[in-house]
Design a protein around this nucleic acid. Structure first.
Lengths: 208, 208
DNA sequence: AGCCATATCAGCCAAAAGGCTGAGGCCGCG
DNA sequence: CGCGGCCTCAGCCTTTTGGCTGATATGGCT
């Protein structure tokens, strides 16, 4: 009976057709459209109201996945959105969830996991890949280690290679304040040099 | 007549089936097997001698793409191997080419490009995505900016967040030597702090 | 043999970063 | 209304880094 309609969003054609092929093996799924950009995704989600939007976070130029999630939620609060991406970055997970994603799946998930996640999302359940879940739990267990928004901002600029002076100028704060923030960041990240902070930041936010 | 036999290697099921679906639309391609790991790839390449091996560099745990390329070339010098990956990292491109790849395609390539690249590889021609090609040319044009092996090694450890002292210990050289190498690395990368060096190193080697 | 790239090391000095202590203002929550 | 988290800033002192100049050794290429 009523099948689950799915909108696929990914900037890679091969991923879209792979997913389409995969979902085609299950009788209750129906891929109603594909989008290669955030813009298209928003438009198609509005036009078609699919049961579930399955989308990658990394998108080419233009609107990124997170922004697309927000826009889609703005149009329809109840739209189920499932993130389907390659990397399990701490920041991305958190951001995706609070942008309104129902679940977070990694691309190396087994077919069964993918099916279950989509079916779950369709009925309003949250699903996530085990590695993703464990990261989230860790964040909840160690709230001490979570950076404040300002610290995260600093850390972001830090990974651009800026000096303390430049950081200060960029953020309209004194160099003293920059050093204070950095000291906090270091203790939270468990490092004691900016180099190590950059390294762990990029590896944490980046991949693996 | 004689169709082009293809071995697909990618750790993501969706990518494999997407590619299979895509290649299925062209009558002259025949996907003879899929491999999800480097180990399987080597074995299948040897057993089936496909016209072209299309593979991702990023592979889960175990043998990575580069290693798999080398192994396959060891077994059969003439085997055509086409790298099909998401990111165009300077280092990866160079390494893939000298590991023996015939071409280097990005996953966001248009279907036509993909077909052309595989057909080209099958007859011994080298093909690469435009952005990839431009990077290679840039490397050839600016040999001054190419790091020596030792410098590259240092840079690698630098991105782990090590201090000069630690770098020295790790490489069994004095801190003075470390500083000399770093100075050279900085001028070659066009930066003047280790933080910036780490940042550009990771962004260059990393992705985008 | 001479030359060049690479790798190694030293010393000196200035600039940047890091550790520590203390402190004021703002805001939300009980 | 007080407590605590967050953001802001200062001063002081040590360590680390970076810039510069110069030197030795090795190995390959001409």
């Amino acid at each position: 009976m009523s099948s689950i309609t799915v909108l696929l969003v990914d900037d890679h054609l091969v991923v879209r057709s792979g997913l389409r092929a995969l979902l085609g093996t299950e009788p209750d799924f129906e891929v109603v459209a594909e989008a290669a950009s955030g813009e298209d995704a928003v438009q198609l989600a509005q036009a078609l109201s699919p049961s579930v939007v399955v989308m990658d976070l990394a998108m080419g130029p233009g609107m990124d996945g997170l922004e697309a999630i927000r826009r889609i939620r703005d149009l329809n609060e109840r739209q189920a959105i499932l993130v389907f991406t390659t990397y399990d970055s701490d920041a991305d997970i958190v951001r995706a969830v609070d942008a309104g994603a129902m679940g977070y799946l990694l691309k190396d998930a087994a077919p069964g996991e993918i099916f279950a996640a989509i079916r779950g999302a369709a009925v309003g359940r949250s699903v996530m890949s085990p590695p993703v879940a464990s990261r989230l739990f860790q964040q909840l267990r160690n709230p001490d280690e979570v950076l404040t928004p300002r610290e995260a901002e600093l850390l972001g600029l830090l990974t651009e290679g800026l000096s303390n002076r430049e950081l200060g100028r960029r953020l309209f704060i004194s160099e003293a304040t920059v050093k204070t923030h950095l000291a906090h960041i270091y203790t939270k990240l468990g490092v004691d040099t900016r180099a190590a902070a950059i390294a762990t930041a990029i590896r944490r936010e980046g991949m693996r």
